[in-house]
């Protein structure tokens, strides 16, 4: 949760675009990564991320914090946007073809061949998990969200999230050990 988020959310709820802009700047990389790992395609990830933020901005007036961080609400919208996108477009990604290049990742980190291969392996392994397992692992270990926040975003109890996380890690371990 970012500093002064409550205040910014309150302003954005009243239609202050500047406040929403700050929230956008903070959450864009997180939501983008989340969508990117799920759709495994740069262009589609950009379209869905933009759509999710547009939906959030249009519905800001109806957002009620109720003690939950704004991020959980955004992740929920992003999840639904991915589902909507799959439903409307009916496309499928060849999980074996997922690579940093396919994802459009241009980063100095992957200049090293070793790191590049590691990423390719882990991205392929994530692709083999179920939707909710992917969501939980990305939110927990890529975005460092606490269990409670992940639970609200995926609409499950905290205990259920812990079980899903354990199962997903086990699956990843098996998949990565085979390769």
């Amino acid at each position: 949760m970012m500093e002064g988020e409550k205040n910014l959310v309150e302003k954005a709820r009243k239609g202050n675009s500047e406040a929403f802009g700050i929230l956008y700047d903070y959450y864009l990389p997180k939501i983008y990564r989340f969508v990117l790992f799920k759709v495994s395609h740069k262009q589609q990830a950009e379209d869905i991320t933009q759509h999710a933020f547009m939906k959030a901005w249009e519905n800001m007036g109806g957002y009620k914090p109720q003690g939950h961080p704004f991020g959980s609400w955004l992740y929920r919208i992003a999840r639904n946007s991915v589902i909507d996108y799959y439903r409307k477009n009916e496309f499928s990604v060849d999980i074996e073809a997922v690579s940093p290049e396919a994802l459009g990742i241009d980063n100095s980190l992957i200049a090293k061949l070793e790191v590049k291969l590691e990423w390719e392996k882990i991205l392929n392994a994530i692709g083999g998990l179920t939707e909710v397992e992917q969501d939980v692992l990305i939110m927990r270990f890529v975005e460092d969200l606490p269990h409670g926040e992940v639970a609200r975003a995926v609409d499950k109890s905290e205990n259920a999230v812990k079980v899903i996380q354990h199962r997903a890690l086990k699956k990843l371990k098996v998949t990565l050990s085979k390769k």
Binding site: G15, E46, E58, M60, W119, I122
Partner: peptide, 27 residues
């Protein structure tokens, strides 16, 4: 998994999407 955190959206996309969202749509 935590190393994947270094993946960032394209700066051009971030700018253009910001403009589209904030100035072409209304809450």
């Amino acid at each position: 998994l935590s190393t994947l955190k270094s993946i960032e959206p394209d700066a051009g996309f971030a700018r253009s999407a910001r403009t589209t969202i904030l100035y072409r749509s209304e809450p």
